[in-house]
Design a protein around this nucleic acid. Structure first.
Lengths: 341, 341
DNA sequence: GTGAAAGCGCTAACAT
DNA sequence: ATGTTAGCGCTTTCAC
């Protein structure tokens, strides 16, 4: 049997309560007594039982992450692994653990949150892939589960959000293309039900408007490779086809580039292409993909830190704004060759 | 306050113990009493507290997964997300949760396991990325932590392993290339410290030997894109350069293909290429990558199931053998053009 | 300032 | 076969 609080109390000649106070740095014990207790605990090599702590304090000492994504997307998204690593790096400093759940359909998502709460598995959750009109906000409210969200849904939310302007990345991409002489710059959108899907589209529109260019070359897609192909095909079939396409993520850009190349277009000669995410493989395409890079590790670290602060009551509830993503110019973008207008 | 076992006991007019027995389907209560108890529990909407259960039974009702990988690899590996989804699908049926840890350096890995145990976070762990001479085996033994491993390390291990023959996938790839007339078939190896790195290399060697061809075109790498580039460059610089390269994963194959294309080689004209993993992006390369596909979802599901069985004492300890991976022939492989020997 | 003691909600050893 | 009861290891209230 491992050493318990009673052993320490006995060794230090005090009560269990005193030990608890002493070790949690709370008032209720004199400094000398505290010293003695700390000493005894160290001597005995006492490690407070997380289970007992959790039980008596009704805490899980864990945070939850429910990932609701299509497997195909999960597998290629460079965001999640780094994001999770970021979460972990914060949690490991605080004796917290991460409980990960993967939900493959909408119902499973809600069930996941409910189970996490019913089982007392977590003290709070991190919400990613925010959606416009996001049902999770009401759900978590009902469940009284503390949360932090990545980006802000248009659904009013009582939860702290980590935000940035996707805007800046897309804007930089569009401006880069305009600088290369492009005037027919299309956008292949990510699923518009997602906050980041829509904000990227809006950023594209605004950047074009700001330059006095029409934002009429839009093709809706869903962040998947096959969606990217379909959208690209639709755009390239148009008589006023674009000379550049801004994609909402690298996977669609990759698929789109592949489609263009196999249909006789040169990249960037006939068509310039930009992605979003900076997936590892993107720089090994032919040509390597110009893309936009954020800092998922940092997002993860911060998201966990903010949530922990909140649980400890040391966060003021203000949203956190992260630095904007950066444009990485590579071979898939180049000067417009000629205008066919 | 939520309804507890005492409430149910009172309502059913029995002791707490009786309720515990009744609800866990154990002997000790008559069928009539059991009926009454179950009824009362349902009426009151009683959900046994996982925390209390865990506390009194010293169980976590959770499994752990410690991922020790370079972030760059984590982000492009299609294996993990699907594998984790598989684990989840089994766990969610058993009131178990998954605690995920990411270790970015070797020390962190050991610390992770120790923390998981000390905190009583998990009842067992799933080991992936097995290494030859794997230190985790001794560690888990010391920690008395039940485990299941993916593949078997050469370190003798008391843990059940899920196995397959990588062999079959690589063999199929080499045979496919031989069938296309290739005779100088190289291999760009994954880190040889890993079981799957070495087994793929050995499979390549054996397949060539079986066909009476020399296995002398080997370049060591580490599963990373940049490693793939370096290895490819070394191979293509050789006077007896290969007409086909079998890569140990898709990321290296992608990077290698990119290198070859940008250095004037045509694929598959001058060089045929095969990968391993069937990453989503691989079919959107130019040309699309011939690769080898396993079933990570199934691996995950099984790994979790076997471990749970083991915890329940219902597994005989026999290794589980999974079906071999499949070769997916795509555009990156073609007939050898001519021989320059 | 200090310490005793009462839970927290279960499980399991123990009487009956 | 059934029910009683003593913990599990901590936190926290409440006397002292």
């Amino acid at each position: 049997m491992a050493v318990t609080i009673s052993d320490v109390a006995r060794a230090a000649g005090v009560s269990k309560g005193a030990v608890s106070y002493a070790l949690n740095g709370r008032p209720g014990v004199s400094d000398v007594t505290r010293q003695r207790i700390v000493e005894a605990a160290k001597q005995l090599g006492w490690k407070p039982s997380l289970r007992a702590k959790g039980f008596s304090s009704s805490k899980a000492y864990a945070l939850g992450l429910v990932v609701a994504r299509d497997l195909k997307l999960l597998g290629t998204d460079p965001f999640f692994p780094a994001f999770i690593a970021g979460i972990e790096s914060t949690l490991s400093e605080h004796e917290y653990a991460l409980v990960l759940t993967i939900a493959t359909d909408p119902d499973a998502e809600e069930r996941s949150y409910r189970k996490l709460v019913e089982g007392g598995r977590v003290d709070g959750v991190i919400l990613t892939d925010m959606r416009n009109d996001d049902s999770r906000i009401a759900l978590l409210r009902e469940l009284k589960l503390p949360a932090v969200t990545l980006e802000r849904s248009d659904t009013p939310s009582p939860f702290t959000a980590l935000r940035t302007d996707d805007t800046d990345g897309i804007t930089a991409a569009v401006d880069h293309l305009i600088g290369l002489g492009h005037t027919r710059i299309a956008h292949v959108g990510g699923a518009q039900a997602y906050v980041h899907g829509r904000s990227r589209r809006l950023a594209w529109e605004r950047a074009l408007s700001a330059a006095g260019l029409p934002a009429d070359l839009f093709a809706d897609a869903d962040f998947t490779a096959s969606g990217g192909v379909t959208a690209t095909e639709a755009l390239l079939r148009r008589p006023d086809r674009p000379t550049a396409i801004v994609y909402a993520n690298d996977l669609m850009a990759t698929a789109g580039q592949s489609f263009a190349l196999t249909h006789g277009f040169t990249v960037p000669g006939d068509l310039s292409i930009t992605g979003f995410d900076n997936a590892e493989f993107a720089q090994y395409l032919n040509p390597p993909l110009t893309t936009i890079s954020s800092d998922p590790l940092r997002w993860g670290r911060l998201a966990a830190a903010v949530l922990l602060d909140q649980l400890a009551g040391t966060h003021d509830g203000q949203d956190i704004v992260l630095p904007p993503p950066r444009l990485l110019v590579r071979g898939s973008t180049g000067p417009v060759r000629f205008s066919t207008t």
